[in-house]
Amino acid sequence: MTPIPPVFEELIRIVLYGTLAILFVSVNALFLVWMERRVAARLQLRRGPIHVGPQGLLQTVADAVKLLTKELVRPYASDRFLYALAPVLAFAPLLGAFIILPLGPGAIIRDLNIGFLLLFSLANISFIGIFIAGWSSNNKYALLGSMRAVAQNISYEIPLMLSTMGVVLTTGTLRMTEIVAAQDRIWFILLQPVAFLIFFCASLAEANRAPFDIPEAESELVAGFHTEYSGMRFALFFLGEYTAIFVSSAIAATLFLGGWQGPLLPGPVWLLLKTYLLVLIVMWIRWTFPRLRSDQLMAFAWKVLIPFALLNLLGTAVWVSMRNLLA
């Protein structure tokens, strides 16, 4: 048998990993929507979906099948090409996050030396997708929603990146595997508690989650940038939102909670446990706190998160150079 040329080997790897990522993302979103509804119900003293399947687990599957059969309605005055492109642009970059997610020692698709910076650059493409969605719908609510979304995303990207720099300074690397390996004795949530809080708040805002969900504030903007979307195009935005929650929780678990590290259980299980714990907290926050106002949201990023992130960075730099001097 002739050996497979490396090009085809690479192509097969890309297709395989891509398929696995899409599969995981879909199942994960179905699970998270169910979880969200159950968590919301519990917090509001209701029961939530319990009838379809065990504990209502198949309810979201039924919803997804219904969405698949829906007609794709396109507003007459919308921009045909961009309107169809936007959901894809908003969702697809999130799949790239799985390239750098370390599931265990050596179990990572590509251990890039730019590490999670890749994720920040991919997130920017998502914002452009949201932008295009709002503009091409030719609807005032959609336009306002997407403008809010982008203003918010630009603002919260700065504290998000600054907070991760504390971890980078401590470990001296951006590689995800090395960052996890550096946490074998103490998790960075203990060394960098301020950075973790800032990262958590900023990633909530980046994923447009309550209490930072003003881009889709129902009471003012109908549904924000995806007001005019229906059927599977709407579902793609929805999928994107839940994937963003999962990805930011997984990155937070990797950077601050020791990633795959933990006793007894295998690495991927630990990572998933930590990630879903963070997702649970995200949902808990959504159903507990009221939505912020637009100006409060901006003030929170620029007057609270960024100064604290800068102070944290400065403190970490001093601490690291002291450590280097003493060592």
Binding site: L117, F120, S121, L122, A123, N124, I125, F127, I128, F131, V150, I154, E157
Partner: peptide
Amino acid sequence: EVIIYIGAISV
């Protein structure tokens, strides 16, 4: 390039 030129300037 993506973060600064696409994420900030183009946006």
